[in-house]
């Protein structure tokens, strides 16, 4: 590859956690890319490795986790070998993150303004104090908060406002890529709706790349242009949102689409997927989905399918894409 057009290129990423009972491969050989200004959705069930990917991209891994293999290129530079000191400089400026629990990412003893200022002083120190203050005001406007609230403490905010403040903080250093990890999961639908709208608008307006992580395919459908589906540490399918929802080829994605209830359209019987997601301490051999797959054959039990392009831009890891024999 020559000069990359992509904001993010992840290649063959392998990450594991060392645990008492043995290594857990939470991210196993994952490859994807995010183009400039593109919104990607990552969807999967709890424990499928979607948050682990996010933490790997920021290199914010706990001490018992290691990246074993692969490349993470941000604007073309591989960040995997970067030492912590240099990585720290890139966080927030090149890549930033909105976490699920806003209360944990805000420090209760500082005002929201101070916390955003602190991040800016660290990463964009060339700005004057006035510029920073202006920037904070415009960020508050952008995320739909009244700038006069900036001198308040996090506990004075409601849940939705806190999440907006965290988004403002993530945007404070004009990152090229923002990762949003279930930012609306703890919120009620009406608040969720307005925050989703805000996120979508901001992403378009700033032409910023985004990875939106969620377990809720309905939310993913709202915010992303392309969707990756994860299962048991692997990316099993990735394509345009259209394709994933209307023309999925991996049996897991197919099942996922038919087991989600909706309030629009005809009321349909929901399909039950047998079994449970595998224990990552002892994943099944071959394709990790094979014990639950309706199209399973001998080869699925023995060999892990390659993750490859099936049609233009439609990647999947399956021996029987679309259920074909």
């Amino acid at each position: 590859m020559t000069v990359s057009e992509n904001v993010l290129d992840v290649k063959n990423l392998v990450m594991h956690y060392r645990t008492r009972k043995g290594p857990v491969y939470a991210v196993d050989n994952v490859t994807f890319h995010v183009g400039k200004g593109e919104a990607i959705g990552l969807v999967g069930e709890s424990g499928c490795g979607k948050t682990s990917i996010a933490l790997s991209l920021l290199k914010l891994l706990p001490t018992n986790a290691d990246i074993l293999n692969g490349e993470i290129r941000i604007m073309g530079d591989d960040i995997v070998p970067l030492p912590e000191k240099k990585m720290n400089k890139r966080r927030w400026r090149d890549i930033s993150m909105v976490f699920q629990s806003a209360m944990n990412s805000l420090n209760p003893v500082f005002t929201v303004e101070d916390q955003i200022l602190e991040a800016m002083l660290e990463h964009v120190p060339h700005l004057s104090e006035e510029e920073m203050n202006e920037k904070i005001d415009s960020l508050f406007d952008l995320v739909g908060l009244d700038p006069s609230l900036k001198t308040q403490y996090p506990h004075q905010y409601s849940g939705g406002m806190r999440q907006r403040a965290v988004i403002a903080m993530a945007l404070s250093c004009d990152p090229d890529l923002i990762i949003a990890d279930e930012p609306t999961t703890a919120l009620d639908v009406i608040v969720q709706d307005s925050i989703l709208k805000q996120i979508r608008d901001i992403q378009k307006e700033l032409n910023m790349a985004m990875i939106y992580i969620s377990h809720d395919i309905a939310v993913i459908a709202e915010v992303s242009e392309r969707v990756g589906v994860m299962y048991a540490g692997k990316l099993v399918e990735m394509s345009s949102t259209e394709n994933i929802f209307h023309n999925p080829i991996h049996p897991y994605t197919m099942a996922l689409m038919s087991c989600f209830p909706s309030i629009v359209g005809e009321k349909t019987e929901l399909v039950t997927l047998p079994g449970e997601p595998p224990d990552l301490l002892a994943p099944p051999p071959g394709c990790r989905f094979h014990p639950r797959c309706p199209y399973v054959t001998e080869i699925c039990k023995e060999q892990d399918p390659d993750y490859k392009e099936h049609t233009q831009g439609h990647y999947a890891a399956c021996w029987h894409p679309g259920g074909e024999k």
């Binding site: 969720q192 809720d216 709202e222 929802f245 209307h246 909706s262």
Partner: peptide, 25 residues
């Protein structure tokens, strides 16, 4: 009405009605 139009729909081609209420509970 607001609650119904706020529920995300698992279909990228579907457009929801905009909701008219604001603020939180």
């Amino acid at each position: 009405q607001a609650l119904l139009s706020a529920v995300p729909v698992p279909d990228p081609t579907y457009t929801r009605n905009p909701i008219k209420i604001s603020g939180g509970i």
